[in-house]
Amino acid sequence: MRTLKLITRFYSGIFLVNFLITLSCVYSMRHFGDDVHEIIGLLFWYKVISLALIFYFAVHYKKNEQYYYQSLGISKLQLGFTTSAFDFTLWLVFILIQLFIGIPAYIFNMVLWGVLLIHVYLYNK
């Protein structure tokens, strides 16, 4: 439970940018409409590469903080694997919902603004 709490804390620092990338994928799918299959492969690699880059920069710019997690028994690999796996699953869920059901514009906007507001609130807390 403590490990989960610590990994969640690390993830919260990179969640927003990852989530905006996921939403940009959904937005691109909406834009392409019936031709969505043409860009699915591209979106996949876009997500995978951005995940790797975001994790790399998070670790690089907060390398001092890695000692904090290390002292608590959580390795860099564990942080990277867990957060990437969760974020990729979240991306997959959104992509599948968009692909098979379609996310209405008002829900898309609500999710976007909701996440931004929650993030601003938590940042200032």
Binding site: R2, R9, K62, N64, E65, Y67, Q70, S71, G73, S75
Partner: peptide, 29 residues
Amino acid sequence: GKRPDLLLYLPQFNFIPKSLKVKQVLDDF
């Protein structure tokens, strides 16, 4: 480094994430 039960390390720079409160740090440990 993966065995905090054997060895803990205090680096020469500050390593506690800036956003944490003192109570959170003590809770974590």
